[in-house]
Structure formats: C-alpha cells, structure tokens
C-alpha cells in the first residue's frame, strides 16, 4: 500500500506567541518548532497501516527550509521517503496550500493520504476536505478509529456528542484526531537512519492567496474576576456569562 502523509511544522504548544513588529505575523525568532501533533497521529497511523499491509510511507511537507526538521522527525519515526515541497511564495491560504499539495499528490499514485485534522498554528482545518474535492477521492475527516482493508476503509469520525461511521473505497483521504493512536517515539536508531534518507525536493508554483491578513493582535486582557452573585439565584447569570461572554459552553 502506497501511503502519503502530509505534515506541517508548527510552533511548540508551550510557545509564547509574540506578534511581530508590523503586526502582520508572529515573531519566529525564539520559537521552538515541532511536528504538528495531529500530523504525528497521521504518521503513526500510516506506519501502522504500512506494517500491516506491507506498504510504504512517504511524508510530504510544504514550507521554508526550516521544516526539514519536522520532516526528519517523521522519518525518524519510521517513514520511508520524504518530499519537501518548495514554493515560489509561502502560502497563508489553505486553498493555495492544498493546491500545491494536490499537484504533488497526483503524481504519487497514493492509495491512502493521511493528515492531521488541523495544524495547531493557523487552525484552519481545511486541507483534508479541500484535497478530497481537488483529487476527487473520498475523505473521512476528524477520525478517531480506522480500519483499512485492501480496497476500502471504515472510519469513525467525531461529531458533537457522538460519531459518524464512514465507509469509502480507496484511494481515500483520512484526517486524524486524538484518540486514534499513540504516536511512537523516534529512537536514536530511527533518528540516525532518517539522516541517511535523501529528502526529495519538488518545486511547485502556488496560486495567489485569497486570504489577506490585515493584522494580528493579542486577545483582549482577561477582565478581573467577578462575583456573579449569591446562591442559586446567581446561576442564570453565571450560565449566561459562560455562554455569551466566555463562550466556553453552548
């Protein structure tokens, strides 16, 4: 089975994000970059499936030079091949990114394309479904359980308060969600072996972004805590605040 895993390099979850001087992006200087945690699930799943179906895993990643370290970590986990997709400009619009990925994916004849359900930096959560349309193959998104046979997959995808069960034929796309698996650790052996794998480079022209960033800002400061009221009478107001002000419950 020929498996592709699309991965992205993102800042560590513990990173303190600082807005850059021109307020158009963030300061990348002191950031520790990692492999997107959802993509780690995708790599793990790819490796598991490859082991079970004597397949091969190719990781693809689009971005500047620094992303090779994310590619290396996927290789260190056990992926067999890697393609670094270089572009004339760095797309910020997932539609453009997906177009670039699609160009490379089409050439690869993959049976299964895996990717994380979202990247934890720009949080768009768009690439999987867009690829499904662009490549004209089915996609099960936000998947927490996956079974793969020679020609089809059965997946459970998370929805509010439950799951949707999905069936589709291969080739197909799956975007991965926590709970699907426990990603393995790269061993020193894997890390050293990964060094010897040549990362293929593909140069792709990407369409123009249709999303324009006007400004990046910090969220407004947290207001000082408040006593909503006394006793059970205060509950309606508390619930209102949680829904409308904090927006943490629905």
């Amino acid at each position: 089975m020929n498996i592709a895993v699309c991965i992205k390099q993102v800042p560590d979850t513990e990173t303190k994000v600082r807005v850059s001087g021109d307020k158009k992006w963030i300061e990348e200087g002191e950031i520790n970059f990692i492999l997107n945690p959802y993509d780690e699930l995708a790599v793990e799943e790819g490796l598991k499936i490859a082991e079970a179906h004597s397949g091969e895993v190719t990781v693809l990643s689009l971005g500047p030079d620094r992303i090779t370290s994310a590619i290396r970590s996927a290789l260190a986990m056990g992926a067999n091949k890697a393609i670094h997709i270089k572009t004339d400009k760095n797309p910020l619009d997932p539609m453009a990114t997906a177009e670039a990925l699609a160009q490379v994916l089409r050439e690869g004849n993959y049976d299964l394309i895996l990717l994380g359900k979202q990247a934890i930096d720009d949080d768009h959560q768009q690439i999987g479904p867009i690829l499904s349309e662009k490549l004209g193959i089915p996609a099960a998104n936000v998947v927490t359980k996956l079974e793969v046979s020679a020609d089809k997959i059965t997946a459970e995808r998370q929805i509010e308060g439950g799951f949707e069960k999905i069936e589709c034929a291969l080739p197909a796309i799956v975007t991965t969600q926590r709970g699907l698996n426990e990603p393995r650790y790269a061993s020193l052996k894997g890390i050293m072996a990964a060094k010897k794998i040549q990362i293929e480079e593909k140069i792709v022209t990407v369409p123009d972004d249709k999303i324009e960033i006007l400004e990046i800002n910090y969220p407004p400061e947290k207001p000082p805590g408040k006593i909503v009221g006394e006793g059970a009478d205060a509950v309606p107001e508390l619930i209102r605040l949680l829904k409308e002000e904090a927006k943490v419950i629905s």
């Binding site: 960033i213 800002n217 969220p219």
Partner: peptide, 29 residues
C-alpha cells in the same frame, strides 16, 4: 479568527468574489 489556540487573533479579508465563513457557535446570539 483566533489562531495559535487563541493566543493571538488574526483580522483578515477574503479576496474572492464569493466569501465563505464558518462562524464559531455561541459567538453571535
């Protein structure tokens, strides 16, 4: 739209003729 798990927010503009949005539940009453 919030990015970086809400650590910062991006103000953006869509440049296509048709503009699509998904809006977070509970934001607009």
């Amino acid at each position: 739209r919030p990015i970086y798990a809400g650590k910062v927010r991006a103000t953006i503009r869509l440049k296509s003729d048709k503009k699509l949005l998904t809006v977070r539940p509970n934001v607009y009453p």
